[in-house]
């Protein structure tokens, strides 16, 4: 079982030389300028059905790699948090707060490197961090996730 705490301890500082960046940019069209693999919501799963989802081969191959991903910050429970949910589209409702709101299935849970203030759910953001894949239950909230980006930072995109 993958646990967030263990992974946190193994956190790697993101220091990349200029040469690495150049090579990375040349060998992979989806590799960002910072040397990260760019993930998209469309690329997370290869099948999507009533009996469950199947991770894409690329997602599985990027386990524990540094990735970047664009999306929207879902309305969080608290104004400042180290934990939020990244969604494909802006979420009108806050499933944490409204009992009849539901999460989409293809969410990505973000664990930040520190706490950060909330941005508007309507503004796209780009998250950078290390990819984790597999079922994981957050010990504080009981929130179960399949895909996470940990040790993460984000910026408005």
């Amino acid at each position: 079982m993958i646990t967030f705490r263990e992974s946190s301890i193994g956190r790697r500082p993101l220091v990349l030389g200029a040469a690495t960046l150049l090579v990375a940019a040349l060998i992979s069209p989806v590799r960002s300028a910072r040397g990260e693999e760019a993930l998209t919501f469309d690329g997370l799963y290869k099948s999507f059905g009533v009996r469950g989802l199947e991770f894409s081969d690329r997602l599985l191959s990027l386990k524990d790699s540094i990735v970047s991903m664009k999306g929207y910050m879902a309305p969080p429970l608290k104004a400042e948090s180290h934990f939020f949910v990244l969604t494909r589209e802006p979420m009108a409702l806050c499933p944490f707060c409204q009992s009849d709101a539901e999460w989409p299935l293809d969410i990505v849970v973000i664990y930040l490197d520190g706490t950060a203030p909330l941005v508007s759910a309507g503004d796209p953001i780009t998250v950078h961090g290390r990819l984790q894949v597999g079922s994981w239950t957050d010990p504080e909230t009981g929130f179960v996730s399949q895909v996470r980006i940990v040790d993460a930072a984000f910026r408005r995109s």
Partner: peptide
């Protein structure tokens, strides 16, 4: 369906 699936199945809730 996600609330019918065990948490180990991707897509489970």
């Amino acid at each position: 369906s996600p609330n019918f699936l065990p948490k180990s199945t991707p897509g489970s809730k």
